[in-house]
């Protein structure tokens, strides 16, 4: 029983973390119609910035949680203004190629700046212990991730359902023609949305830093996971991103514990199954060739 309880909690914290990252990917896709291949690299950058701020500068974790994602968002604005602006009017393939190039550049820059070795960020004192819950001991930090995840989830829900900007973003994600009809593809909105997506990736990176070791391959892992999340849930759908993230969280939470020999493979099997029966994801629609 206690095994299942902690596997569930583990699934929940992985799932919420993935949701934060995947929803950023979805927002950028929805409004800009591009899949940002560098999204995982931006997440990694969030983690490494937090590492520098905490371990090098000596800032408290909380300050890093606030500042590092902003740093990532500022970089995203620069990427958008310097590079992406050339290709918004072009074929989709070009945006895929360009964000892929950005991914290579960020990955290698991280390797140059922080080295190929593994780096570790300690959770703040307050959250470094563990508590007894459901009959087993759970890392306090894990609970913290769940709480922050739920707060962000609520915030995003409010944004998408209760504010005009959010509703437009959500509608645009599902129907591109309408997005164009509302003339939301103005430069400011495009840059803003791209930066917001990057900010979410950055938040995910900082939150993940004390849970996972930092290495230059961490962005690659997370972008694949995010793809799996949006394919399972449905590209462009926000409830879909949540659902996909939870499914993947459960696969990790339970797969790692009960099927360690094939745990790396399970997410792909899940994705293939969804593709076979629901090619557009569980909550997606449209977008066939």
């Amino acid at each position: 029983m206690s095994g299942i309880g902690s596997a569930l909690l583990n699934s929940l914290d992985i799932g919420l973390l993935l949701f934060i990252i995947a929803v950023g990917l979805n927002i950028v896709f929805g409004v800009l119609n591009i899949i940002n291949f560098a999204h995982g690299a931006l997440y990694m950058l969030g983690a490494y910035l937090a590492f520098t701020l905490i371990n090098m500068v000596g800032m408290p974790f909380w300050a890093a949680l606030l500042l590092a994602p902003i740093g990532v968002a500022i970089l995203a604005v620069i990427i958008d203004r310097v590079l992406l602006r050339f290709i918004y009017s072009r074929d989709v393939a070009d945006s895929l190629l360009l964000t892929f190039a950005i991914l290579l550049i960020i990955n290698e820059s991280v390797r140059m700046i922080w080295g190929s070795g593994i780096q570790v960020v300690q959770p703040p004192q307050l959250l470094s212990g563990s508590v007894q819950l459901l009959g087993s001991s759970v890392a306090t930090y894990s609970l913290f991730v769940i709480v922050i995840g739920l707060i962000l989830l609520a915030g995003l829900w409010y944004l998408f359902n209760r504010t005009r900007v959010g509703r437009i973003m959500r509608a645009a994600a599902l129907d591109r023609d309408m997005a164009e009809a509302l003339c939301i593809n103005t430069r400011m909105v495009v840059t803003g949305v791209f930066a917001f997506g990057a900010w979410l990736a950055g938040v995910g990176g900082v939150m993940a830093a004390p849970m996972r070791a930092l290495d230059p391959g961490m962005g690659d892992k997370i972008i694949i996971e995010s793809f799996i999340v949006v394919v399972i849930g449905g590209l462009g759908s926000f409830p879909g991103a949540l659902l996909g993230a939870m499914v993947l969280g459960l696969i990790h939470g339970f797969g790692g514990r009960y099927l360690p020999e094939v745990n790396l493979l399970l997410p792909f099997v899940g994705m293939a199954l969804v593709l076979l029966f629901k090619p557009h994801g569980i909550m997606g629609k449209g977008a066939t060739t």
Binding site: F268, L275, T289
Partner: peptide, 17 residues
């Protein structure tokens, strides 16, 4: 079966599989 955005993501994901 799906459009080129999906195709790019899926080929990457299956490649990593």
């Amino acid at each position: 079966r799906l459009n080129e955005v999906y195709f790019a993501m899926l080929t990457l994901a299956f490649g990593m599989m």
